[in-house]
Amino acid sequence: MPHLAAFPKAFMQALCKDGTMRVSEWIELAVRLDIDGLEWYAGFLEMADESNWPRFRRQVEDHGKVIPMMCCSPDFTHPDAGFREKEIAKQKRWIDMTHALGGSYCRVLSGQRRPELSIEEGVRLAADCIEACLPYARERGITLIIENHYKDDFWEYPEFAQKMDVFCRLVDRVRDPNFGVNYDPSNTYLAGEDPLELLRRVSDRVVTMHASDRYLKEGTIEDLRREESGSAGYVKRLSHGEIGKGLNDYDAIFTELKRVGFDGWISIEDGVDGMDQLERSVAFLRRKMAHYWP
């Protein structure tokens, strides 16, 4: 049966930018939930001090939870080779961070979709950088997971591999037992595409999942499909919502994951409207997981 984790979606500004929340405070909030683990973020301000890494691991494990997944955002599609080497070095440090926290999965991304970048060149650059990190990850027992992502908060351009066809080309290019997919159904809507179609194309490579949901603030799903202004338009039309009450069909998602034998981590990206909302999302997912993996 899969395991359930939570990510501090509502507290990223406080944990990563202004420091108004301490990581220990997030831990104490999260461990009250009916979850098995806490997904980590490499950009928590306090993670800059490596002496904090074992302390946070102990605090989580003292509550009977674990830190299975690390969320980070390398930019592997920059045209400058020196820049890419620095991103590889950062990714290796994040792998070390994951290992120190007791985790098994560390996210990678493709990089930014720079206007001058061709599809073939972008896939090659991203694949080469991911493959450069894989031996380092393998030595530490870490699986690198690529997410069908939208855009890092600090990037100028959206994700290079945001669109389904590009994402699948990149996933197909990197064939390694220590590399898999972190599937996020909501991000597919941001690309104007069908999350179930993407899942069917990559389900045999999915090792972790982000559980989230989106709802339309205005218009219809057909309006979303007709958008021509790019990803920025999708973001304005879509908003995060409580899991089970948005656009995602979790029965169809879990049916497909069960079919391929998925038993990895499902991490909740929710709670932007408070811990009560996050608790309801946990309860929804627990019911669904118990149904599909009794």
Rank of each mutant, 00 (worst) to 15 (best):
E156T: 03
T77F: 06
H149D: 15
E85G: 06
K288N: 04
S203H: 01
G111V: 15
R124E: 15
F83S: 10
N178I: 01
E131Y: 08
L216W: 09
L257S: 10
E120T: 13
T188A: 12
D80A: 07
R201K: 03
A137M: 07
I266Y: 00
E139P: 08
C16P: 03
E87R: 14
E159S: 10
P54N: 11
E227C: 09
L196N: 12
I268T: 06
H78E: 13
M12V: 10
I119K: 10
S110D: 01
V171D: 04
E28H: 05
E139G: 10
A6V: 15
P177T: 12
F7A: 01
R114H: 10
E50D: 15
D165I: 12
S51C: 14
F167N: 00
K245G: 04
A126L: 07
I35S: 03
A252R: 09
R169G: 10
K92Q: 15
V202Y: 03
F83R: 10
E39G: 05
E85I: 06
R55P: 01
Y215Q: 15
G244T: 07
R57K: 15
L125K: 10
G261R: 06
G64T: 15
D251S: 12
P54T: 09
V260A: 03
V206E: 14
K9V: 13
I145Q: 06
R84C: 09
I27W: 03
D204S: 15
G19L: 00
W26L: 03
M209C: 09
E28Q: 06
